[in-house]
Nucleic acid binder design. Structure first.
Length: 207
DNA sequence: AGGGTGATAAACT
DNA sequence: GTTTATCACCCTA
């Protein structure tokens, strides 16, 4: 299965991101309905994008086929997942930030150490955790059934009036670009936090 | 409700 | 050597 809208040009990734709201992702016995996403554009187009400076070993998946999964490792312990968008050779992706668990909630609770239900997939790393995904899934397809995850459409179209937007979470660059999209009123949507610059550890030499 | 902080590793300058 | 598309936990209210 291919979804033509996923292959819209990288410059339209914000629209693609909004389209993904309400879709279901299923992997390893857990399904969840996407409630919050963020768009990231390609080389030279988006200072906050991993692809801003061109291809590297980490981001090469972003330049591949739309519908593939780009997983990256952050802060030494977390995985975050994107759906690759745009034409082959362009880099654009949608970060999956939050979802509502619709199937396999017992499995998800187990994987998430029995956190409250609204926290099972609230935040990109928690979402990946709930789905039981990791390094192995990087570069696999989320649309043709050949990989561990499958993306499926909602039964009814999402009401555009329920879609809100704002600045992306945790990014230091491009605060003025409102490319975070979420469904209004969903308990699983992570609250916006301004990026707090981490005070780097300083040491005073005691004489 | 919200702010501060430690954990911990790869990518990048 | 510095930064990072985060989370859990602990603190003050």
């Amino acid at each position: 299965m291919t979804y033509h809208w996923l292959q819209a040009p990288a410059s339209q990734v914000a629209t693609t991101a909004q389209t993904l709201l309400g879709w279901t992702v299923s992997a390893n016995g857990v399904s969840l309905r996407l409630t919050e996403v963020e768009a990231y554009a390609g080389t030279g187009e988006d200072p906050a994008s991993h692809a801003q400076r061109g291809p590297t070993p980490r981001n090469e998946v972003m330049f591949g086929s739309a519908g593939n999964i780009y997983l990256y490792f952050v802060f030494g312990m977390h995985w975050c997942m994107n759906i690759v968008c745009g034409h082959e050779g362009e880099a654009a992706a949608v970060l999956l930030r939050a979802g509502e668990v619709t199937e396999g909630i017992e499995v998800a609770r187990e994987r998430r150490n029995h956190a409250p239900d609204s926290y099972l997939a609230r935040g990109p790393a928690r979402l990946v955790n709930a789905l039981g995904l990791g390094r192995d899934a990087n570069g696999t397809s989320a649309v043709d059934g050949s990989g561990p995850m499958l993306l499926t459409p909602p039964s009814a179209a999402i009401d555009p009036a329920l879609v809100a937007s704002g600045p992306r979470v945790g990014v230091t660059a491009a605060h003025d670009i409102p490319w975070r999209f979420w469904l209004v009123g969903e308990p699983s949507v992570s609250p916006y936090r301004r990026h707090t610059p981490r005070r780097r550890p300083t040491y005073t030499v005691i004489v």
